[in-house]
Design a protein around this nucleic acid. Structure first.
Lengths: 337, 337
DNA sequence: AAATCTTACGCAAACGTTTTCATATACTTG
DNA sequence: CAAGTATATGAAAACGTTTGCGTAAGATTT
């Protein structure tokens, strides 16, 4: 039960503990014979370096903090999986925290991670206010944002090109003959969602069709919210032939509401989402959507962060990845007259 | 950029740094006036305790390690969310690792967490061999297993009663008139799945129907595996009126395969799963299943772990939670003749 | 008023590493 | 062979806390 330390090993090996440390760290200034002997003794004694003590002296924990709005969200959990695996390969472990879509909590866990002396933080922010609130905090530790960006603050972030993606989606529906497209789930408290809405507006202008937006006043885009918005919308007669959702989760909520109303997709109504979460691919759902490349997002974010950890004084950068259309069976072509 | 330490605060306040420490820790042996003054200075200077240094001396990190097979799995991510929130309320942070369904990697990350001096580990094991492989390791740090258990090793674990749940599921199908029920996805490399299969066998014996099992020879139960098993099965004529899956993910794969074959659920085939993941509730899927109470599992596991951390010499315990049937629309009653 | 007890604080050790600097030994080289 | 140079190792500081112990000063008791 007693934990073996460097000193214990040193005593058995009859050397100073500095020597043991050097033997294990692969330092060149040590004799080959003693190195082998010490390493063998370490193995026999089951010595395992104390990462806390090492962090203490090296002023580096090899931990990176990850703040997500909710790990219980297919998009985030997919990305977290990629992040964790890649981070471990790079010698880092992940400390994961939920902000639960609460800016106050987000700030709190950020401080907590700073106190834990994580080497860096990757964060999927609750909303665009996150920037202001965290401005002083992000100065304390290298931070990279995923998915959320902003014009005025040159923070580090990686994101998909939300505007281009949503514009592409709108144009796709147009190409199928849709002229009356409802954009469902616009939000003002998230830059990501503003940019997505921009894509829709851009396309409308370009294609000369009338924008038609149903806003989401809550703080998040969930299946539940999509369901409620659609349900309310379906209460009254509507003329749209297609619904374009700001997120896949919303679209799945719409499916539910449509199902209850007997509205068939895509026969009666075409439907699109954005994100391409795993479950959108399942045939019963088979949602046409815009893909966010989760692996690339994860890898880019970590690369960017590791870079900043190494060279903190480097200028801030951003990486914008290209989204891509994923065509499934939730949209149909209609004759437009 | 320079980090404020206890010493800095002490210097400004004109006291020893022991006094600052005591002021913040709420020690009684300190004057009320100095306490207030010191705390105020701490706030002004933006002092934040260094958790690493504290861990060093207190021999406690307030970190718990979580090893899941894959965070990118709705069941695990739901539970992780609950765990993280509850743990944080208890003053702990979560270090999350994927074992990626690989026993060797599982062992490796376990060691890694031990080296990190986590206070305890919660683990969803890859399979029942995990116990043997980790026997020496679990002695080094309090460990609690979730969902996986075993007869011979009295490890700490919390689990749902898999056998009772699957027996209940089988009986439910029987009550709908099904006599030819295919059990899809049995696995030998997981005690959980053995116990679930036991539930099916028990029910068959009790109800006097012939067991009919399609094994899963891979290491995991994924949508993909379910799809492949069902697809192969549907190639040839089959006589089953219902398929009972060892996991919801498998059942969703079955839906996909059935869809492609034009087999309607529940009209042509009844289908059940086990786990009750979020997406099983969506109307297009609407899977009748057996619920695993994720919140209760998470809370029980953490309580058990915290208990062991406090009193490591306490005897091992197990907590078995009751599953419950969740009836949706993937099963139909048939006339049995 | 002397003796005792509290109270509030400082000193310093300890936690387990890494790493700089010093030093002893062995090895070159002129 | 003397002097210098590598080479291998040890001693000790440092990282930022917590906490046991010691001790002044003040409060209480007799």
């Amino acid at each position: 039960m007693a934990v073996v330390t460097l000193k214990d090993v040193a005593k058995v090996a009859g050397v100073s503990y500095a020597t043991v440390s050097r033997a294990l760290s692969g330092s060149p200034e040590i004799g080959e014979s003693t190195r082998k002997r010490v390493i063998k003794i370490c193995e026999e004694m089951g010595y395992m370096p104390n990462a806390v003590a090492r962090s203490m002296v090296m002023k580096r924990t090899n931990i990176i903090g990850l703040i997500v709005t909710s790990i219980d969200n297919p998009f985030m959990s997919e990305m977290t999986a990629h992040l964790e695996i890649y981070a471990r390969q790079c010698g880092y472990n992940l400390m994961v925290c939920n902000s639960s879509y609460d800016p106050a909590l987000e700030k709190e866990v950020f401080s907590l991670l700073v106190g834990r002396k994580v080497d860096g933080i990757i964060m999927i922010p609750v909303g665009s206010e996150s920037y202001d609130a965290l401005k002083t905090q992000t100065a304390q530790v290298p931070t990279v944002f995923i998915g959320e960006n902003t014009m005025d603050l040159p923070e580090n972030y990686v994101s998909v090109d939300n505007t281009a993606g949503m514009q592409q989606a709108t144009e796709y529906l147009y190409s199928l003959g849709h002229r009356n497209i409802l954009y469902l789930g616009a939000r003002d408290n998230s830059m990501t969602h503003k940019l997505r809405a921009d894509g829709y507006y851009n396309a409308c202008k370009k294609l000369n069709i009338e924008p038609n937006v149903l806003r989401n006043s809550s703080a998040r885009s969930s299946v539940q919210v999509g369901y409620e918005l659609a349900k309310a919308h379906f209460e009254q007669p509507f003329s749209e032939t297609a619904i374009l959702c700001a997120a896949d989760t919303l679209a799945i909520g719409v499916i539910q509401a449509a199902y209850e109303k007997g509205i068939r997709i895509p026969e009666d109504l075409s439907l699109m989402g954005f994100d391409n979460i795993t479950f959108s691919a399942l045939p019963p759902i088979s949602l046409t959507t815009v893909n966010q490349p989760k692996l690339e997002l994860a890898v880019s974010a970590l690369d960017m962060l590791l870079n900043r950890i190494k060279r903190p004084e480097t200028p801030h950068t951003k990486t914008i990845l290209s989204p891509s259309l994923v065509i499934r069976n939730s949209c149909r072509a209609i004759g437009n007259n």
